[in-house]
């Protein structure tokens, strides 16, 4: 590889330009980690022991997890249909599914708020069932689900597309029902895509903020808490939480990537 680079000036240029991106990300994160962990470790340790902070991080992780579970359950059938069948209006449905990616988060928040607030069209119906979204954990889940489902559906759809449809057809002729050919053939062969789609969806949920503060400022997820502490205590108060959040996310995703890779090897 190295000898190839030396003889290829274009590759050298591309490498340098590419490294700007990587360097930018590393610089932002490492500077924060360095200043926190090395220069001000005391504040960081205090944060680790703060039950409010831990509670908010835990809330972030598990609301996003629930949002992802919903995305997986509802997204697999949609992804399968989009991958396998052509029909009128398919382009429109694909475009609709991608809308949450392109609209600003606060816009998503406003839209969800008007739909799900206590007096909203859907919010009213659900409040009769005892489920409240406005300033409630379920509001966080619904906001996270909204912004993250396109990532899951997109990845799962590519997964199903990569499975040769003749495999399911042969399974049918061998005696498999539609359901059996789906869960014995298509689903296991798409496992890796589904898993990585779920990871992306979960990560996207954790990173959501704009839509959540509009629909459910309370209970506070980590990002909301960081903003609240920043507004009252500045960088000193918010950075340690940010560092802790990054570390938790980073470790979790590395572990999940490893599991997904091992799953693919099997």
């Amino acid at each position: 590889m190295l000898s190839e680079i030396r003889r290829n000036p274009l590759l050298i240029l591309f490498f340098i330009l590419g490294m700007v991106i990587v360097g930018y990300i590393i610089a932002a994160l490492s500077h924060m980690l360095y200043s926190q962990l090395v220069l001000h470790p005391g504040e960081f340790i205090a944060v680790i022991k703060d039950p409010v902070v831990l509670q908010s991080i835990w809330l972030t992780l598990y609301t996003s997890f629930i949002g992802t579970v919903i995305a997986v359950i509802l997204g697999i059938p949609l992804a399968y249909i989009l991958a396998r069948y052509d029909f009128h209006g398919k382009d429109i449905i694909e475009a609709i599914v991608d809308i949450p990616i392109i609209i600003p988060h606060t816009v998503a928040g406003i839209a969800l708020f008007s739909l799900l607030m206590k007096r909203g069209a859907v919010g009213t119906a659900f409040s009769k069932l005892g489920i409240v979204f406005q300033d409630n954990m379920w509001g966080i889940v619904m906001a996270m689900f909204f912004v993250s489902c396109p990532f899951f559906v997109g990845t799962a759809r590519e997964g199903f597309k990569s499975v040769n449809p003749n495999l399911e057809r042969v399974a049918r002729t061998l005696g498999a029902s539609q359901w059996e050919s789906f869960y014995q053939i298509a689903l296991p062969l798409t496992f890796r895509h589904i898993f990585s789609g779920a990871i992306m969806s979960w990560a996207r949920g954790i990173s959501e903020f704009g839509a959540i503060i509009i629909l459910a400022y309370y209970p506070m997820i980590a990002s909301t808490l960081i903003l609240a502490r920043f507004n009252t205590n500045g960088l000193q108060g918010s950075q340690p939480i940010a560092v802790l959040l990054i570390m938790v996310c980073f470790v979790t995703f590395v572990v999940l990537r490893l599991i997904s890779k091992r799953g693919a090897k099997r």
Partner: peptide, 28 residues
């Protein structure tokens, strides 16, 4: 439905189940 016809089908691209070994393909 195809599963109730009991016909064998062989495709040009073989359509072997890649997540199963040879034996498991045959005994599917």
């Amino acid at each position: 439905n195809p599963e109730n016809r009991g016909l064998g089908f062989v495709y040009q691209d073989f359509a072997l189940f890649p997540h199963l070994n040879v034996k498991k393909n045959i005994e599917y």
